[in-house]
Each structure stands twice: as C-alpha cells, then as structure tokens.
C-alpha cells in the first residue's frame, strides 16, 4: 500500500500537510460524525476533537495501515465516548424525534434537472434520511460507511472493530429496518 505523502509530512510536524488532510476528509468525516450523533453542534465539536487527536497520535500511526480506517476509528471512539456521556440510551435505541435538515449545500449538490424531478428526488431522500435517522446508531453507522463513504466491508470491520461477518449482518439488518420504515410511511 502506498504511504500517503501528507501523512508522512504531518508526522514531521508539517502544518500544511494537516491542512491538506482536513480539506480532503472534511466532508466525509463531518458527514460520518453527523450521522452518528445527529446534532450538528456535537458533530462540529467532535470534528475538531478528531483532528486534535490525529495531531496527538499521528506518530504512533503505522504508515502501512489504511489512514482512512484509522481516522474514522479515532472519530468513532470519540463519538461513542461522547454519546455514552451525553445520551447513553442513543447507542442502542433510535431517537423518538428524527433529525433531518437539508442545508443550502445539500440543495446545491442535487443533480436532478426538472422541478418535478427535483421535488420527487428531494422527497425520496427526505424519506430515506428520516428513516435512517430513526435507526439505532450501529445501523446508521454501517449504512453511511458502506453507501456514503463507499468503504469496503473489510474497512468497515477495521473501523468498527468487529469481524466481517458482523458487519455483513449489521448491514443486512439495517437495510431491512430501513426498508420496513420506508414501507410503513
């Protein structure tokens, strides 16, 4: 596996390398944290904490490992510690009030062309987002890592520190619950 040049530079204390890495991962990392904690303010705080943890731990990072998986593992550990402190019940159970917000950036990123397409697609995505937000944390996590971050099953297993078979089982159950929620709407 090729060693990421920015990671190597960051290990030497190069601030520009950190800037490059934050720029590269900002959307993926923020989205992942937001899917886990569901509150933008908490996701923002965890986003900052994750990068501070990266700076703190980068020297102990094994360059032969996958940086993506390492970064998301750090973020996950911080998010789970945070949820344990603030809302321990949210680790296992869905929230009664789902979180969903469509930002201006979300609307800009929409690829649909006609107003009708736009409206229908927006409705579908709203439905999926709302249904996903109601799922337990473990299911939301596996869905976002697989479909939004497009991580391989093995990478998800690394991030979540569970066997590949468990990841597959969580993925299947999360899809089934999501489909059930969509059909119940």
């Amino acid at each position: 596996m090729a060693v990421d040049a920015d990671v190597v530079r960051l290990r030497r204390g190069d601030l520009n390398a950190l800037s490059e890495l934050i720029t590269r991962y900002q959307n993926r990392l923020y989205r992942y944290l937001l899917r886990i904690v569901r509150q933008p303010a908490e996701a923002e705080d965890l986003f900052q904490q994750t990068w501070l943890r990266v700076v703190e731990k980068i020297r102990s990072f094994d360059a032969s490992r996958n940086f993506d998986a390492w970064l998301f593992t750090l973020a996950r550990n911080l998010a789970i510690d945070h949820l344990r402190r603030i809302r321990p019940q949210s680790l296992d159970e869905p929230l009664a009030n789902s979180w969903h917000s469509e930002t201006v950036a979300d609307r800009i990123s929409c690829k649909d062309h006609t107003p009708l397409d736009h409206a229908l697609a927006a409705e579908r995505r709203t439905g999926i987002s709302e249904a996903m937000a109601r799922l337990p944390m473990m299911y939301r996590e596996v869905l976002t890592l697989r479909f939004e971050d497009e991580m391989k099953i093995e990478e998800i297993a690394q991030v979540t520190a569970v066997p590949v078979s468990t990841v597959k089982s969580r993925l299947r159950r999360s899809l089934e619950q999501l489909r059930y929620a969509l059909e119940a709407r």
Binding site: E44, T103, R125, I128, F147
Partner: peptide, 20 residues
Amino acid sequence: SELRRLPTPQPSSWLVQATL
C-alpha cells in the same frame, strides 16, 4: 441507489479554520 445519493452535509468554512 438512494442511499448512495444522499446529500452530503458540509462543515462550515469557519469550522475548518477553527480546527486548523
């Protein structure tokens, strides 16, 4: 397919600057 096309929420530029 819809899960793959969910809009990506983006962090504000303020957050990125503050983190840096």
